[in-house]
Simulated assay, not measured.
Amino acid sequence: MSTKLAFVDTETTGLDPFLHDVWEVAVIVREDGHDTEHTFRLPPDLSLAEAKALEINRYMERVTAPGWKWDDRRTAARQLYRLLDGAVMVGSNPAFDAEFLAHFFGSYFEKPKPWHYRTIDVTTLAVGSLYGRALEWTRKDYDATWYDKVAKAIGWPWKSYTVSEQVSVEPPAKNVAHTALGDARWARDVYDAVTTPDPFYAASDEEMVALVEPALRATDEGQR
């Protein structure tokens, strides 16, 4: 039986879960190899909101856009709780999202943290992958400077977008960054980049033919 993964991102009115509210949540649930996307819009209390937070996540621009509609908080809580129940939460700094969600669920449920106790941060995961490659390259080339090369490439403290680029995943576009669904999709892509083999190397002979044949056909037609 496969483990349920939940790629999660939240947008909030500030950085303190005791003072600020989550106002947008996206969850991409992966079960049995299939992803389903869910987004919730929760009307927040803005009395203690941080202006900088609202600027970064473009709160006023987005909530006043045509078609924006708030969800009922209690109904959303039930639906979201069910999606996260027993799931391994994956994201960019998911501890942040988990704390805000726990405070949100605390108003409705006795157990405010229904997810698996171990969350997965995709930036840390990707950095581990890069240092793992440095180990392989060092053993192959007898050159320990590969570690320094990785450290220089990702910088310190690690910046998620820089690390993302190092594992060949483009960060979200400006109009998508700091939207819950856009960031959840990006976190999923980073996770997949370091945990899923390239289809080219994992393909069977039949799948390899299906991958290569269209390119060969296009080349052949172009030469005529």
Rank of each mutant, 00 (worst) to 15 (best):
A210T: 10
D205C: 00
A218Q: 13
R185N: 02
M1K: 09
D198V: 01
G106P: 06
D32P: 01
D85M: 06
Y201N: 05
W70K: 10
L211C: 01
D85A: 12
L48F: 07
K52L: 09
K174A: 15
R82S: 14
D121N: 13
V27Y: 05
S2Q: 08
G106S: 06
R217S: 10
G132V: 12
V167Y: 04
F104V: 04
T219W: 15
N175L: 15
V194K: 03
T36D: 11
V27N: 02
D35N: 14
A126K: 09
P17G: 00
L5G: 05
L42S: 05
P44M: 07
D45P: 09
D121W: 12
L84Q: 06
H38T: 09
T219F: 15
W70P: 06
L101G: 04
W146F: 14
F104S: 03
A49E: 03
T13K: 10
D9L: 01
Y147I: 05
L83F: 11
G182E: 03
K140F: 00
E170V: 01
H38L: 08
M89G: 03
L125N: 06
T138M: 03
V8M: 02
D220V: 08
M60G: 07
T119S: 05
D192T: 07
P214C: 01
S160N: 13
A87K: 09
E24M: 04
I154M: 12
S47I: 04
T75F: 09
D97C: 00
D205T: 01
H103N: 03
V88H: 11
Y117K: 07
H116D: 13
N175S: 15
F100S: 00
Y81V: 02
L54D: 07
L54A: 09
P214A: 01
A177C: 12
T64M: 07
M89F: 05
R73P: 15
E31T: 10
G33C: 11
T196M: 12
K113L: 03
E110M: 08
A6Y: 11
R74P: 07
D72V: 10
